[in-house]
Design a protein around this nucleic acid. Sequence first.
RNA 1: GGAGAGGUGACAGAGUGGUCGAAUGUGCCAGUCUUGAAAACUGGAGUACCCUCACGGGUACCGAGGGUUCGAAUCCCUCCCUCUCCGCCA
Length: 419
Amino acid sequence: MLDPKYIRENVEAVKVNAQSRQVSVDIDAFLELDEKRAKQLKTVEDIRAKRNAIADAMKDKDVEDRSSKIEEGKALKEKLTKEEETLKKTEVEWASLLHRIPNRTHLDTPIGGTDEQNVEIRKAGKIAKQGKTHEELVGHLIDFERGAKVAGSKFYFLKNELAILEQAVLRYAIDFAMKEGFEFMTVPEMAREEVLVGKGFLPRGPETQVYFVEGEDLALIGTAEIPLLGYHMKETLSEEDLPKKYVGFSHCFRTESGSYGRESSGLYRVHQFAKVELFTYALPEQSEGLLEEFVRLEEAFWKSLNVPYRVVDCCTGDLGGSDYRRYDIEAWMWTRNGGEGGYGEVTSASNCDEYQARGLGIQVKKTNGERVYAHTLNGTMSATPRALIAILENNQNADGSISIPEILQPYTGFATIKK
RNA sequence: GGAGAGGUGACAGAGUGGUCGAAUGUGCCAGUCUUGAAAACUGGAGUACCCUCACGGGUACCGAGGGUUCGAAUCCCUCCCUCUCCGCCA
């Protein structure tokens, strides 16, 4: 969340920012509530001060007008209860609006409405003249029908070489990140609502992507970013420990409600996938440089797998609520555009500056004693099966077989997947 | 899942209705002493929000949320977490 003080002092900027990010949130309504809340809070605090004064006076057992003081206290209590209720109501509304106000945006972020306006900033790799889709290539190693029978549409079984390839890619991604100094963790794959809200979206909202567990205050995570962010919530970190770099593995669950038919062919958009995720807690002055480092790592990863890609600077309309700046890497996939081929998102790296940390109470105590909120960054190292699509479709041979990229062969134990 | 014991400041650990934002010890910071250090002694030190130019002041926080009371760390309820034993399982 944003600092309410910042919103009060930069009303126009906050409005313009929300608009360019395509977030409809009534800033004026927030300000009105904010004022109301301040007033009500003052009222409540004044009553409490009086109550405390009376209670204080009664420490002395034989004060004179004891019974009249008790009466006074009773009256205050009644009034207080009423005012507290009013305040609470205001606060609930206030907080829910506050959480909906999106993060500030980096000055260099392109302005735009949808991902169509994302700006390509680099391109690498050579795209073949033509190619088959992963379903054409390894359809026999994917079982969607039985996936649907067991769990519903967009669930799947991967078989044999393809399943091994998935494990290989994930393990390779973990090693890749660990070599760069990231600490590897597996994480809880469910989280409490409190943590989800801190991540920067309202899980009970209409556009929710989240599976809830019946009868529990728990949801299946949509990304390891959630537990990795919750890891240090309500903690104060020391300046000398930063940046803290973690790489987490988790399965990810998304309802993808409303996205059927939209570029959802094959394994591209599914309800369950596995992901190796980079996450970093940083000092404010470190976060911009670290975002570039994330992208550098991600690019090196795809290069090592012979996958052509491009890096895009995500435009305002495509940013998530907590993103300050985001770069996506899109890999070439023949699956896109109905088999014509196109770029499809395989990783994304975000700098959320202090937005998430403020909501979750993650501070840094600097060596000079000053306290600031930590900056948080997250980025995909590799997410399967989407990574598999990119690898399969860009390493296919004319006869329909797949050559496993050399760097993966120690992990797979085989060099080709036969037709 | 069942039975029991607990959750207090950086840590250890007092505190069972008012004098408790919280004893004491350790640790931490500053000072005295010392060539320097240690020891000893003296003093200081939580977080968030609000009011104030400032000095200073108010409110909240003893796992979380409710309740009882004029007044709650302390009593009651719910939840979360930790530990011990049993059960079940990978």
